[in-house]
């Protein structure tokens, strides 16, 4: 009885909360982006080896982190939808896939633009780059699955299984630079030691990472609202919401 009520109510409340929250999150991320960009492009000194080219780190690393974080959001939301039949789980998994795909693409593209001047090549098939490319294909596979299966519940179930199976790729991406010899260097910030990056370069990196993270949540909320409207289009509250000048 409680569960039924809960399932019915969750998307409605989420939708209302999301409308309040997303503009603030977009605003906050904009402020963080400005701070991070000033810090990263202007205030941070050039690197002792890579010179000014190292500034690509401020878009490359946050998008790479986000590409993995978003995958965990997608897989755990999908698992929640699968196990507990939480409608919001299916909705969040579906909403996060395009975001994840675009940030994975950004990580790969900026990495390529960094690799050319520093390593001397746009692309190599080493374990780190290849596993990140597989991540992009997992996202694209999930998206293709969603658009290929007409029935939303069946699509959510199939997508969740794909997302859960693909989770094995996440530790592989992270540890690839330790387990195998790769052209990509080892971890700088996310290791148990002290980060091997100067504080003046680290602070803008953390600001940019936070900006990307907040931006991700803001965009996720808007995408989730779209999914909610589509999932729930025949319910009374959506009709009320649409009729009531969208002020419910």
């Amino acid at each position: 009885m409680f569960e039924r009520f809960h399932q019915y109510a969750a998307p409605l409340h989420f939708h209302r909360l999301s409308r309040k929250l997303s503009p603030w999150l977009f605003g906050l991320s904009a402020v963080l982006f400005v701070a991070g960009l000033v810090g990263g492009l202007v205030l941070a000194p050039a690197d002792y080896q890579q010179g000014e080219s190292f500034r690509i780190i401020y878009v490359h690393v946050p998008s790479a982190w986000l590409s993995m974080f978003c995958y965990m959001v997608m897989a755990s939301a999908g698992a929640a939808g699968l196990i507990w039949k939480v409608k919001m789980g299916d909705i969040m998994a579906r909403a996060s896939a395009p975001l994840g795909a675009s940030f994975t693409f950004l990580a790969l593209a900026t990495g390529s633009l960094w690799g050319k001047p520093m390593w001397g090549t746009w692309w190599v098939w080493d374990a780190r780059l290849t596993s990140e490319l597989i991540l992009l294909f997992l996202y694209l596979g999930y998206i293709a699955l969603q658009s290929a299966i007409e029935d939303r519940r069946a699509a959510a179930r199939a997508g969740a299984v794909l997302a859960i199976v693909g989770v094995v790729n996440i530790p592989i991406i992270h540890y690839s630079v330790e387990w195998w010899s790769t052209l990509h260097q080892g971890a700088t910030v996310t290791k148990f030691d002290k980060p091997s990056i100067d504080v003046s370069m680290l602070i803008p990196l953390l600001l940019m990472a936070l900006a990307f993270q907040v931006f991700f949540f803001a965009a996720l909320l808007v995408r989730a609202r779209c999914e909610i409207l589509e999932f729930e289009q025949h319910t009374a509250w959506v009709r009320d919401y649409l009729r009531g000048g969208r002020k419910v």
């Binding site: 080896q49 890579q50 990056i197 100067d198 003046s200």
Partner: peptide, 13 residues
């Protein structure tokens, strides 16, 4: 072909 591998350290000169 020769590719450079850089380390994970970033610091000012």
């Amino acid at each position: 072909e020769v590719l450079a591998k850089h380390d994970e350290n970033y610091m000012p000169p």
